[in-house]
Amino acid sequence: MRRLLVVMLLLASPLWAVDPKEILDDPVLEERARSLSQELRCPVCRNESIDESNAALAQELRIVLRERIVAGDTDQDALDFMVARYGEFVMLRPDTSGANLILWLAAPVMLLIALIVGWTTIRAKREVAEGLTEAEKAELEKILGRDAP
């Protein structure tokens, strides 16, 4: 039972990230702020959103975001402001256009190249082994310490 309580507390810890003093009075604006803060990366915690992070910088970002929303910014205006101020790194899911397109495509392309190189290497080694004469195969088996067929 004690373990279950600890696990539940650990799973609920992101709920404690937003300080009650930060929460907006208008539930609609607060919902927008929570939604947008889940799209922004905490610069301290790396792969945590500012909504989940307890870092002081994440708290400041949440406050700035809420100030922008209260000031009347649209969701895109608020996100654009954060990107202009902190760089594109602040987005958890960066845009997939321009220079970022290279970054998004680099991993699959490198994987494809590695698979092709691996396949051709294995195929080339197999062809070399198949091209041996019977005497060469027997000699190879003798060197490797296996009994000849």
Results as ranks from 00 to 15, higher is better:
residue 98 G to A: 13
residue 89 F to Y: 08
residue 69 I to W: 09
residue 95 D to M: 09
residue 34 R to V: 12
residue 66 R to V: 03
residue 61 L to C: 06
residue 98 G to C: 12
residue 97 S to F: 10
residue 79 L to I: 15
residue 49 S to L: 08
residue 67 E to W: 01
residue 74 T to S: 15
residue 37 S to L: 02
residue 100 N to K: 11
residue 65 L to G: 10
residue 37 S to P: 06
residue 59 Q to T: 11
residue 88 E to P: 06
residue 45 C to S: 15
residue 63 I to F: 10
residue 73 D to R: 08
residue 54 N to F: 03
residue 48 E to Q: 15
residue 36 L to A: 12
residue 42 C to E: 07
residue 48 E to N: 11
residue 62 R to G: 07
residue 54 N to A: 03
residue 58 A to P: 08
residue 35 S to H: 14
residue 91 M to A: 06
residue 98 G to E: 10
residue 33 A to H: 06
residue 40 L to V: 15
residue 74 T to Y: 02
residue 37 S to R: 06
residue 71 A to R: 04
residue 42 C to K: 09
residue 80 D to H: 04
residue 65 L to I: 12
residue 100 N to R: 13
residue 60 E to I: 07
residue 83 V to T: 05
residue 43 P to H: 00
residue 55 A to M: 03
residue 52 E to T: 05
residue 67 E to V: 03
residue 54 N to E: 02
residue 77 D to K: 13
residue 39 E to L: 14
residue 114 A to S: 05
residue 84 A to R: 14
residue 39 E to P: 01
residue 57 L to F: 05
residue 83 V to E: 05
residue 89 F to P: 00
residue 91 M to Q: 09
residue 98 G to L: 10
residue 34 R to C: 04
residue 84 A to D: 05
residue 84 A to M: 04
residue 57 L to N: 02
residue 110 M to D: 02
residue 42 C to R: 13
residue 36 L to S: 09
residue 40 L to M: 15
residue 39 E to A: 13
residue 39 E to Y: 02
residue 40 L to G: 13
residue 73 D to W: 09
residue 51 D to L: 14
residue 41 R to E: 04
residue 92 L to M: 11
residue 45 C to N: 14
residue 50 I to D: 08
residue 67 E to H: 05
residue 43 P to E: 03
residue 57 L to H: 02
residue 50 I to Q: 11
residue 48 E to P: 01
residue 98 G to K: 12
residue 43 P to A: 02
residue 66 R to Y: 05
residue 70 V to G: 01
residue 98 G to T: 11
residue 115 L to S: 10
residue 64 V to L: 11
residue 92 L to C: 05
residue 45 C to T: 08
residue 70 V to M: 04
residue 77 D to A: 14
residue 105 L to R: 12
residue 86 Y to Q: 03
residue 65 L to N: 10
residue 65 L to W: 11
residue 87 G to I: 08
residue 86 Y to H: 14
residue 112 L to W: 04
residue 114 A to G: 00
residue 50 I to V: 15
residue 95 D to T: 14
residue 105 L to P: 04
residue 104 W to R: 14
residue 93 R to G: 04
residue 55 A to D: 04
residue 77 D to R: 12
residue 70 V to R: 08
residue 65 L to Q: 12
residue 88 E to N: 13
residue 112 L to Q: 04
residue 104 W to V: 13
residue 55 A to I: 00
residue 76 Q to H: 01
